[in-house]
Design a protein around this nucleic acid. Structure first.
Lengths: 350, 350
DNA sequence: CTGAAAGCGCTTACAG
DNA sequence: CTGAAAGCGCTTACAG
């Protein structure tokens, strides 16, 4: 009599609906409710009870409590994404890809640390205490993976050279780097500078090494004195370029390759201030192909990396592991390739 | 005898260390372990037992299992951030701010939906089933908040007009919008177009309304026929501008205001293609002041919004609620202001 | 100050 | 097909 509110509104707010309440309403045990709620009725629950329970669930607005469920099962439905830096548009895309592949069955928990730094053993413990269904680890170093020593499902993203630790999805940045070297060489550049990222992530070493090798093979000189590095930050990069440019210019440098587009934006910005004409006086290129590289003036030549696909594939692989499937290809590599824009297209291509 | 491995390495990997194991080692009950692990020993545990337990915890590498803990307490240590779109550099900064204020005590769970869409009742239930310690909701609509009807701690971000639902942190976008109108008026513009976002988020309505009002007050005409809208996407915006420009030009439009910098990038891009000189032929401005707005050529005039502070403040407020404190100021508003750059700085300022 | 015990909500052998 | 019961790991009155 005191339940004057319409039943459509699933229970009064605040009062948690439990399996016991559903069981009582449907006239069955909580075991049966659990079976129905989890779709494990196959040959274990009568049609009659299935529909009773379904109705009770609908009427009460019951949702399986994931804390209780996780405790009983031993794992939660949480997938943890460990990443060193998310204030990066590239990373936003990776996340979007992960979300897409994970779907509604898993919740994505972000474990972020200071830009460029990696979680310590402490943080890891706290994460593992959540009993995640799986782990996605972006751009880790070996030390971190040693620390981790988890036995659960795990997939690495952008972790070249660490394939021994877990199934991985990597980017073939070397390919794009070589294309870039070839492009600059064929445009007539003979002396090139390299603006690297200070982050010790493996991908940056590969970008640089592949570029330097191909450049050397094509007769392009990248003097060690013309290789500098800064944090991934427009301002820091602009400053570093401003400081280095006079020497570079004097040494006959006509192009600068940046480890990320973000670095390149700094160069573009400072070049404008300093009156350096791009691309005629200096060609500039980056990696990542962020959305704004198509918009800057001139457009920024950049090695395109499939961020969303990286996240998508990693999520798919992880799902496979969580569901206990054998992965057909534990190691995936996604292509990269150079997008040429105005920042390297000289009128005087050789 | 069979434990030949060094004890420093906290237990053998894979074997979960429980409070019972710690209790056994320290020669106390699990109740005491719990008290020590949670720092609730004040007048309840002897110094002696405290140090025994601490030592056992260290030796075994015990970490409180958060699933068990959450079930017993009734809430988890998870803070859920509900947001309509994260593939947006603006949002990456908001997240960084949230992380900073939340610290190590809480885990940040991202609940993302399709760009521009909001979670349905279904998704909400699944989130609430995690028993979050608190909710952070970015740019919600009233319908969503009605659905939510949660009683737990919740803080809204960028939710102007919805202060009745929960403590909020908002951005004073109207202020920047008015500054922008004043700036364009004083630069001599008399006919201006407006490129809006199709997302029905309140902030966009406020940006537009405030701009239109101030423009009108200053004798600047924004013909309804010159107000169009697209998704927040460089390409979509570029296309829309390409289609609209001939008419705008004919009608004497000399400036276009974009609801976001992302829209503005599309305009800049297309303007270059179409040979429209910026700012002389057309002035362009946006909102958000994304990092690349300082770098584009010309630099993009934009209303700066403090993204990181938005996340930071919201996180702080939420912590307050979770800890049961009364908020001194349940409603916070952060300033916005116009940053003038080359895209609106005509040589011929009146 | 301390520990035995109940309970959080669920899942899963197990016996019927 | 069904339900009583044990158990997941922890926290918190409660009695001592």
């Amino acid at each position: 009599m005191d339940s004057s509110r319409p039943l459509k509104q699933p229970s009064r707010p605040g009062a948690r609906v439990t399996a016991a309440m559903v069981a009582a309403r449907a006239g069955v045990s909580t075991a049966t409710v659990s079976l129905v709620a989890n779709g494990k009725t196959r040959g274990r629950v009568s049609e009659d009870n299935i529909s009773r329970v379904r109705q009770a669930i609908a009427e009460l607005g019951y949702v399986v409590d994931s804390v209780g469920s996780s405790l009983a099962r031993g794992v939660s439905s949480i997938v943890v994404l460990v990443a060193p830096d998310i204030s990066n548009p590239f990373f936003a895309k990776v996340i979007a890809g992960v979300r897409e592949s994970l779907g509604a069955d898993f919740q994505l928990l972000l474990s972020v640390t200071e830009a460029g730094e990696f979680p310590r053993a402490d943080d890891i413990r706290r994460i593992l205490a959540l009993r995640p269904a799986g782990l996605l680890v972006d751009a880790p170093d070996a030390a971190f993976l040693e620390d981790l020593s988890t036995t659960g499902p795990m997939v690495l993203l952008d972790a070249p050279g660490l394939e021994a630790y877990a199934p991985s999805v990597n980017l073939d940045v070397a390919h794009g780097a070589r294309e870039l070297a070839a492009h600059l060489a064929s445009s007539g550049h003979r002396r090139v500078a390299y603006l690297d990222s200070v982050t010790g992530t493996a991908t940056f070493a590969i970008r640089r090494t592949a570029f330097l090798e191909e450049a050397a093979a094509r007769g392009v000189t990248v003097d060690p004195a013309h290789q500098i590095s800064t944090t991934i930050d427009v301002g820091a990069s602009a400053e570093a370029f401003a400081a280095a440019w006079p020497q570079w210019q004097q040494a006959g440098v006509t192009a600068v390759v940046c480890a990320t587009d973000t670095h390149a934006y700094g160069v573009l910005q400072e070049a404008r201030v300093a009156g350096v004409r791009i691309p005629d006086e200096l060609a500039v290129a980056g990696f990542d192909d962020l959305p704004y590289s198509a918009t800057s003036n001139p457009g920024l030549s950049s090695v395109h990396l499939p961020a969303a696909r990286l996240g998508l594939k990693a999520g798919e692989q992880l799902r496979g592991l969580i569901e206990g499937r054998d992965l057909e290809q534990p190691q995936l590599t996604l292509e990269s390739s150079l997008i040429v824009r105005g920042s390297t297209e000289r009128a005087t291509a050789s």
